[in-house]
């Protein structure tokens, strides 16, 4: 299990255990954490699971594939640490991972 902290746009924090193999998006959805819509269910087709990765972690996760990069290009309020959470796979190494949610996914 990896402990992941999700911080809503209003500052509310949720710390949950997520099973390795799941995505960071699934960790939020399965634990009823608001702020990630994930309309397409993780197919990298909708860009509604946008998150900001905590600066301490940006270099420690797998880099973006081309599809994710270009989908993000067209999301709202994108920053240098933006990712689509359906494309971040949870591993034991992600224990302590922190993401923040944008104001809106649409």
């Amino acid at each position: 299990m990896a402990k992941i902290k999700y911080i809503e746009h209003n500052g509310k924090e949720h710390v949950v255990d997520v099973k390795p193999g799941m995505s960071v998006m699934e960790g939020a959805v399965k634990n009823l954490i608001p702020g990630i819509d994930a309309d397409c269910g993780g197919a990298c087709a909708c860009a509604t699971c946008h998150v900001y990765v905590d600066q301490a972690w940006t270099g420690k996760i797998e880099p973006m594939q081309e599809m994710e990069k270009t989908m993000l290009d067209f999301a709202e309020a994108v920053e240098s640490n933006s990712r689509l959470s359906c494309q971040i796979k949870v591993t034991e190494a992600l224990d302590g991972f922190v993401v923040r949610m944008p104001k809106s996914q649409h």
Binding site: A47, M67, T70, M71, D73, F74
Partner: peptide
């Protein structure tokens, strides 16, 4: 087809 910019901008 494997063309996210065309798709995303196309939607707009």
């Amino acid at each position: 087809v494997n063309a996210a910019p065309e798709y995303m901008m196309g939607r707009r």
